[in-house]
């Protein structure tokens, strides 16, 4: 079963394409990381997936249907929007009531247990919560709705490292218990590295690479050796840098590398993502997003 399928998907704001020629086919049961610099189109893709936006070009189906096409489809997809919005004037209990009133599949026991474990009192106003607590409340609303796919847009961007870890941990537990598919965006690879088993790199409104993390790591290599300008046809160059006498390639290949001249090293996920971002910008590795 496919969670999200996009074909030549595009979204234009005025004359600017926020997302262009996006082809994706994400199987169910994954925790999908969507990574890319700010302004790359992550939020646009997510808004298209939950039906907040309509595409300008191409098609997108989520869980087999047009996103946001009706109450039934809305019930199947949970969304924790950027900055985890909640109603500042309403208490946590009010938020639970909101969830219960507006979602037929609402799991009240799940929501209450989760908040109890987090130590959040039900009578507290959402406006008085810390950023981490508010994110947890928004996540609780998203999970207790019992969706098949949960979409989270930069949910940890505003959180400190400890709250970040707790949040992602909670998300992983819920995903495992409920057999949720999760689509999670971040501009930090380090956030996603721990939790994702599927990765999409989005740069400059385009998808650079998408695939299962294990497979991506198995097929990407760093080659270091004497200067060379051409590589075999089955080795796709992701990035290349040369000094006078030495060459440094990051390549993608399905086959083995036989050339003994190369020193072949494995890539970390972060190196891999940075290589794709680097390739797209055409400049030297820039410090894309320094961890806050």
């Amino acid at each position: 079963m496919t969670v999200l399928r996009a074909q030549a998907l595009g979204k234009k704001y005025g004359s600017h394409w926020a997302l262009k020629d996006c082809d994706l086919d994400i199987p169910a049961g994954h925790v999908v990381g969507l990574v890319g610099p700010n302004g790359a189109g992550k939020t646009t893709l997510m808004n298209l997936a939950v039906g907040q936006l309509r595409p300008t070009a191409g098609d997108i189906t989520v869980l087999g249907n047009k996103p946001g096409s009706g109450p039934a489809q809305l019930a199947r997809v949970g969304y924790v929007a950027q900055d985890t919005p909640t109603y500042a004037g309403l208490s946590i209990a009010d938020h639970l009531r909101l969830g219960a009133r507006l979602n037929p599949g609402w799991d009240d026991a799940l929501a209450r247990n989760r908040l109890e474990q987090l130590g959040l009192g039900l009578d507290r106003k959402a406006g008085k919560l810390s950023g981490g607590q508010r994110a947890q409340l928004a996540l609780t609303l998203g999970i207790a709705k019992r969706p098949e796919l949960l979409v989270l847009d930069e949910p940890v961007a505003a959180l400190d490292p400890l709250a970040r870890r707790e949040f992602l941990q909670g998300l992983m537990e819920a995903a495992a218990e409920q057999e949720l598919s999760v689509l999670l965006s971040s501009h930090l690879v380090s956030d996603l590295e721990r939790v994702c088993d599927y990765l999409i790199v989005l740069v400059d409104s385009r998808v650079r690479v998408a695939g299962e993390v294990e497979e991506l790591l198995a097929t990407h290599h760093r080659l270091t050796g004497p200067r060379r300008d051409r590589l075999p046809a089955d080795q796709q160059v992701v990035s290349a840098s040369h000094t006078e006498r030495q060459s440094n390639f990051i390549i993608r290949t399905e086959g083995p590398i036989h050339d003994p001249a190369w020193t072949v090293t494995k890539l970390s996920l972060e190196d891999l993502v940075l290589a794709y971002m680097d390739e797209s910008t055409g400049t030297r590795l820039r410090p894309l997003e320094v961890q806050r």
Partner: peptide, 17 residues
């Protein structure tokens, strides 16, 4: 202004409703 439309529009009811 508060962004809460993105919360409420993703509950299981349509914007029209």
């Amino acid at each position: 202004e508060a962004g809460t439309h993105r919360l409420v529009w993703n509950q299981s009811i349509t914007r029209t409703r």
